[in-house]
Design a protein around this nucleic acid. Structure first.
Length: 205
DNA sequence: CGGCTGATCGTG
DNA sequence: ACGATCAGCCGA
């Protein structure tokens, strides 16, 4: 469990308008917040992945593929990019850099920042599972699809500005030392040839 | 913990 | 057709 300062400052534009690798590391320990009708859900970010623009074979924008789907990746740092994966799940990304440079960070895992958030997350995950699901408590939000379900994040929140939004934003969370950050290969992009081996997944040890 | 499989639909 | 995935099941 993480101990957060009482007064949580929101992250501003300059935090997000950095390159996708820096942003992926910096987002670790920060708190993703979604204020919903059923409560304020706060998740400490514990795993991220970088997607590095038009040259990255693992990215949706590889080769300059700028379409209505990938458009949010081209927007200014702090923009949400939420897409449907495998016809079932949503994945939450945060655009990096500035307009026109499609770098982004996939948020892969969060942990509830407080007890209220844990309860909200469990409810949303159970509701989606439509019945009993033994693994919900143990695997609350430890994957991009699970995280979106647990935090009530859907494609309705796509292409939003996390710097300006009143209900969807990121706060400072906990400070990490560089040695607390681990790195590994990105998941699920076997088709990306040499880019599949880049150590662009980051996590809290 | 690692490997396997079916589910499901918007996008291009 | 094809996924930046998940859950449940298996075996070790």
């Amino acid at each position: 469990m993480y101990h957060l300062a009482d007064k949580q400052k929101r992250l501003e534009r300059d935090f997000f308008t950095r390159d996708g690798i820096t942003l992926a590391k910096e987002l670790l320990g920060k708190v993703l917040v979604h204020e919903t009708e059923s409560g304020i859900i706060r998740g400490v970010i514990t795993e991220t992945e970088s997607y590095m623009g038009e040259e990255d074979k693992g990215s949706h924008t590889y080769g300059g593929k700028r379409t209505s789907r990938t458009e949010p990746m081209y927007h200014i740092g702090g923009t949400s990019y939420i897409y449907l994966i495998y016809g079932i799940y949503d994945c939450m990304n945060i655009a990096a850099m500035t307009e026109g440079i499609p770098q982004a960070v996939l948020v892969r895992k969060v942990e509830p920042a407080d007890e209220i958030s844990r309860i909200c997350m469990e409810e949303l995950r159970m509701k989606r599972a439509s019945g009993r699901c033994a693994s919900v408590a143990k695997h609350l939000a430890d994957g991009p699809g699970k995280l979106c379900i647990a935090m009530g994040i859907t494609r309705e929140l796509n292409d939003m500005d996390l710097v300006e939004s009143k209900t969807f934003y990121v706060t400072e969370g906990i400070a990490l030392q560089p040695e607390e950050i681990g790195a590994g290969k990105r998941i699920g992009i076997d088709y990306a040839e040499e880019a599949a081996d880049y150590l662009w997944r980051f996590y809290i040890r």
